[in-house]
Simulated scan of single mutants.
Amino acid sequence: MLKGLCRFTGVVALVCSTFSSALRADNSTQVYTGTLGKTPIVLEVNPDTGDGRYFYQKYRKDLVLSGTKEGEMLVLEEGDETQPHPSMRLQPTPDGWSGEWTSAEGKVLKVELQQAKLAPVPADTLPYLVQLHDKWPYEYLRLLGLKLKQGQTENFMGYTLQWWSEPQSKIQLFEVVSGYSGQARERINQQLMARLWRGVTGYFECANDYTATNYDQLSQPMWMTTSVMSTVISTDSYCGGSLSDQDNEALNFDAKTGNALTLEDVLWVGQGKPLHFERNYYQDDSSQAWSDYRTEEWTPWLLAQLLRLYPNEMTAKPETEDNDCRYNSEDPWSYPGWYFTEKGIKLAPSYMHSAAACRNTGWSVLPYSVVKQHPGGIALQLP
């Protein structure tokens, strides 16, 4: 399972006859590798506007760029307008850009950039990393060279878990090393390791040299049986701006197949065949039918169930006006987080960053006796 990860540890090579063609991150931005002075960097930029970002390979942290065009020249300003900052002036070359970087103090360094070209990935590379290689080369290059460190082994509900961490970011998650069929375990572990690397990417995207930031992430297995599995990843972060953020993301799996489960796979209260819709982390995918179901059928039904099961909690008056969670309104329950527990499905209401504390409900469990009356699209053995 980890061979693909172990191979994802080489030094970034910039020139090789076997490399693929030049890469574009999407339709508007291009990715370049090269040097600032003598230091290797990776830069992603919209050549029409100059907006973009770059990182030093040694540190991997994003440095945001805003730009203008002066004829063919790109003038890139680093950081924000609250303080003096470095800038780049770049002229196009046949395979990239060439120019100068000037610090806020006036120090000048040469910049040489070529369009990024990546070596093909080995056949056993983690699918998530293959996706980055093919579609998001900037993020692939950011992770290239990082290694996971093996941590403790844990027994949880009769299953053996092996923990792994990335030392620089301290992001960690586990693999399942015993229990479940080999195929199901491989699929589960691929998704767990993808989430670990997503956390590493989030750490480096959050960090910058102009604002004091923090990005702390804690992963915890919640429930594991022969039928289903849940783990929760909790993230506390401050990446600039006026507010910090708290987020809990659950990963839920069908333990028989290893496939990820959506709420509609487990519980369906609509008409017709249950929908199956998964949001894509790197794309703003949407489904109108799914959104309509959530707002028109799911939310009114769930609100009625919670008011019946937890009337005091749902209608509790706030201590202060600023802490008015309004659990008895529909908005928090249209797109809740969820995971399996011993007694039922734990639902976490969704709130904006400013009301993140309202997400922490210890009581909002939908009992399996209710869930089983409204089976979802996949047959599951629930308690």
Rank of each mutant, 00 (worst) to 15 (best):
E249H: 06
E249S: 11
T257N: 06
G241A: 04
N248M: 06
G270Q: 03
D284G: 15
S287K: 12
N252D: 13
Q283Y: 13
D265Y: 00
N280Y: 10
K256P: 00
G241F: 03
P274L: 07
W268A: 04
P274A: 10
N280R: 14
D254I: 08
E278S: 14
G240H: 07
K273G: 06
E264N: 10
V269C: 02
K273N: 04
E264D: 09
T262N: 08
G241K: 00
Y281N: 15
Q246C: 04
L251R: 01
N252A: 05
A260Q: 13
P274M: 05
F253T: 03
H276M: 08
L251M: 13
L267K: 07
G272A: 09
K256A: 11
W268S: 04
T257G: 05
S244C: 00
E249Y: 09
Y282S: 14
S286Q: 14
W268Q: 04
T257F: 11
S242V: 08
K256N: 11
T262R: 02
A250F: 02
Q246Y: 11
L267C: 01
D285T: 15
G241T: 00
V269R: 07
D254Q: 01
D284Y: 04
D245N: 15
T262L: 08
E264C: 09
N252P: 07
L275F: 10
G240P: 09
K256Y: 11
D245M: 14
Y282R: 14
E264W: 03
S287H: 06
G240Q: 07
L251Y: 08
D285Q: 14
N248V: 10
Q271W: 00
D284N: 15
G258C: 02
Q246A: 07
A250M: 06
Y282G: 11
W268R: 00
D247I: 03
G241D: 09
S287Q: 10
T257E: 11
N280C: 12
H276G: 05
N259H: 13
H276N: 13
H276C: 10
A255T: 03
L243A: 02
L263Y: 01
N248I: 06
N280I: 12
S287F: 03
N280F: 11
Q246D: 11
Q246T: 08
K256S: 10
A260C: 00
S286W: 03
A250L: 07
D247E: 14
H276R: 14
H276V: 09
F277P: 08
E264M: 10
G272S: 08
Y282P: 12
L263K: 09
N259S: 05
Q246L: 07
L243S: 04
S242Y: 00
W268C: 03
T262K: 05
A250H: 01
